[in-house]
Design a protein around this nucleic acid. Structure first.
Lengths: 196, 196
DNA sequence: CTTCCCGGTCAACGAGCGTAGAGTGAACGG
DNA sequence: CCGTTCACTCTACGCTCGTTGACCGGGAAG
């Protein structure tokens, strides 16, 4: 216990407090959504005063934007996604969903994308755009855009159904089983010439 | 104008007012979601006093439940869905999405299923359960449940991506193009033996 | 015509929310 | 050792919301 009594500099203290607020906000945005998350509940979970949250993040929307921006590490997987194969896209998604931080950051976007314009914009124009472009660029037929969009919509449906709606049969399934069934299906979606 | 001065009985008047409130509520729940829809805005759109909404529907949750229940007409398509083919499921979905009333009732469920427990329950246990059972019963392999759940998740992803997220390339695509690309894919998902 | 019923309105309460500004005490720099 | 900075707290404003109970007026019933 006394081990925590180490001296921490002011900047370090500030950094830790901001991180505590940000962690609490990310979790609550992901679990109960933007509207049901209150500045007060985030501050309480982080062990600070609500006014401090305002001081550090400006507003509730600013707090959400900060959390949404944390999803950026996902883009380190951008190179892998640039492959444009369903395998790479699915791997990216599952990898994101296994790390607690990027998982909650991504779920915060998805949970609120239907009721919060900013969440929808970030999800559509920042996250999905990458896989869309990578996939579409590998398809030669004129319906490439639609095929890529359908792949994105399917991955969104998978995430929502598995982690949020918790559809029976999908929520409990192993990642391996999901991949085994979904990969050939997504491959067919992306292949320009199904008849062969 | 004077044509509207016809005499209406009290029960008919009541019925029309309830319908006006219900219509306004369905539209707003579908378009801006449960939280951003206020009793006051619904009443205003219906041309009545907010207190009357409470008197007729009990509470805001009661109003939402009444709208969610209007999705039931969807089940007249249940017989078609019982076929358990992706074609039938997709036809059901598009048919629902083309009628303004059942369309908004379904979108109201989807829009709020991530932030409103009741919406999630109705969507999962009432709407999706039917297509799930119909599809799963036609699959002989032990992964039937997972395959059916993946189909349901895909259809949810399609609806969300096309009508709510409005993913570029998917929102503007014609129903025919979407069906042409998606049907063989869904068929592969539902087929127990992909290798052939 | 009188009486009751009922669709509909009005005004208001109480709670919870995002947010603002003044204040405090400890860590820092000189 | 002193003055400043800064992390952090306290209190409270103003707004919007769901919800309530008293009230009003016209149509139905006798």
């Amino acid at each position: 216990m006394a081990a925590d009594q180490e001296h921490v500099s002011r900047v370090e203290k500030r950094r830790r407090t901001e991180a505590a607020i940000s962690d609490a906000a990310r979790t609550q945005f992901a679990e109960v959504g933007f509207e049901r998350t209150t500045i007060r509940s985030v501050a309480s979970a982080a062990g600070v005063d609500p006014a401090l949250v305002m001081q550090y993040f400006g507003s509730k929307d600013g707090l959400f934007a900060a959390v949404a921006r944390q999803q950026k590490p996902h883009r380190r997987l951008l190179d892998a996604t640039r492959e444009g194969t369903p395998q790479a896209a699915l791997d990216d998604l599952f990898e994101d969903l296994e790390d607690p931080v990027s998982r909650d950051a991504l779920l915060a976007l998805m949970r609120n994308c239907l009721t919060h314009e900013q969440a929808a914009t970030v999800l559509r124009d920042d996250v999905m755009r990458h896989v869309h472009e990578a996939v579409a660029s590998r398809i030669a037929t004129p319906d490439a855009e639609l095929r890529a969009a359908l792949l994105g919509a399917t991955l969104v449906g998978l995430s929502i159904g598995r982690y949020m709606l918790r559809i029976p049969g999908l929520a409990e399934a192993s990642r391996e089983d999901v991949e085994r069934l979904l990969l050939p299906v997504l491959a067919l979606l992306v292949e320009p010439a199904p008849q062969a």
